[in-house]
């Protein structure tokens, strides 16, 4: 199936699916951003194997976003879809942008046992099938595939969605892939996936709050840092589970299964810049792999200069 065939089919489907979307995804009030485009933003849920996935969605309030493929943004751990709040507000000026919370984070239900990346990716895929995307969606006709953006953990949810439900996937944007060779992963797992001593160290939460919010050297406001702190706390005693899944993940064959167009923004201030370059070499079956150097950018730029990331990503998503 080529892009032009799919576009025609999608246009027809979107017209008939509009009522379905209206029923399934309740609308909230419009928000504004720095541009003149009014954005409609709302929160909703979709079913998955663990219960529900929580999603923050945004699109142009005048309905003009329906002609572009939706973009789904998958967050790093232990945050939530709210990580992309500033980026979403800009990106949603001309398309639907969905920012779900990975199972066990934000408002999404927790897995009932330590999950693998296949479990987390599978749950996310289920949520989007239940929203009507991909083939064989329950109920009415499918809304088709979406574009996917990941960051850190989010990138491995993407590789699992590609492997399990390629019908959900059009294009991929994968900055900061946590790729390490197999012989390095166990050390990383021990370093990052340790339970936080919430109940054993009485000073832990207070100290973490001071370090992460009150005394943090950051360009972000204390209020925004507090949002991130709250998201860490919401993940609870199991906040380490996604890290465990990342560093147990056999990423090599997963990366080799990608057959779509891929954009790899290389954010120079990210420790995962070089791992992303290494991961690119394994995407041997991808239709295309484009590395895009973004000097001077790091994770905090999703919040501080989202316009730069939007400018870097949009041409790739919108190319013919």
């Amino acid at each position: 199936m080529n892009d032009s065939m799919f576009t025609n089919r999608r246009d027809v489907l979107l017209g008939t699916a509009a009522a379905f979307i209206a029923a399934a995804i309740p609308r909230a009030r419009a928000a504004t951003n720095d541009s003149n485009v009014k954005i409609k933003k709302w929160r909703h849920y979709a079913d998955c194997r663990y219960g529900q996935i929580h999603i923050v969605s945004a699109e142009p309030a005048d309905g003009s976003g329906k002609n572009k493929t939706p973009l789904v943004c998958l967050h790093q751990s232990p945050t939530s879809g709210d990580y992309y709040r500033e980026f979403q507000a800009l990106m949603a000026q001309d398309r639907l942008v969905l920012c779900p919370d990975t199972s066990g984070y934000g408002g999404s239900d927790h897995p009932n046992a330590l999950p693998t990346m296949a479990d987390l990716g599978g749950a996310m895929a289920e949520a989007f099938v239940n929203l009507g995307y991909g083939k064989n969606a329950p109920g009415t006709r499918s809304l088709g595939p979406v574009d996917w953006l990941g960051f850190h953990t989010g990138n491995y949810l993407i590789t699992e969605i590609v492997a399990q439900r390629p019908d959900l996937v059009r294009r991929l944007v994968m900055p900061s892939i946590p790729y390490y060779p197999a012989n390095e992963r166990e050390d990383k797992r021990k370093q990052f996936s340790t339970p936080r001593p919430y109940f054993t160290d009485p000073e832990y939460v207070g100290k973490s709050f001071k370090d992460g919010v009150l005394n943090a050297k950051s360009e972000l406001t204390k209020e925004r840092l507090m949002d991130f702190f709250v998201d860490r706390m919401r993940a609870g005693p199991e906040s380490w589970w996604a890290f465990d899944a990342v560093f147990r993940y056999d990423a090599d064959p997963a990366l080799a299964k990608i057959t779509q167009d891929v954009l790899l923004p290389i954010m120079s201030l990210e420790t995962l810049a070089e791992p992303t370059r290494q991961a690119a070499k394994l995407m041997t079956k991808a239709k295309s792999v484009q590395l895009l150097d973004l000097p001077g950018l790091g994770g905090v730029n999703w919040q501080t200069t989202p316009d730069k990331l939007v400018a870097a990503i949009k041409p790739f998503l919108d190319k013919a």
């Binding site: 919430y198 109940f199 939460v205 706390m233």
Partner: peptide, 27 residues
Amino acid sequence: YVGTMYKRLVLDGSEAGELEQRYYRFV
């Protein structure tokens, strides 16, 4: 403030509910 409230509401056990409930109430 946050550290003190956490110890009082979650850890010292005098508030109602199991530990996990007290934790999420604090959150």
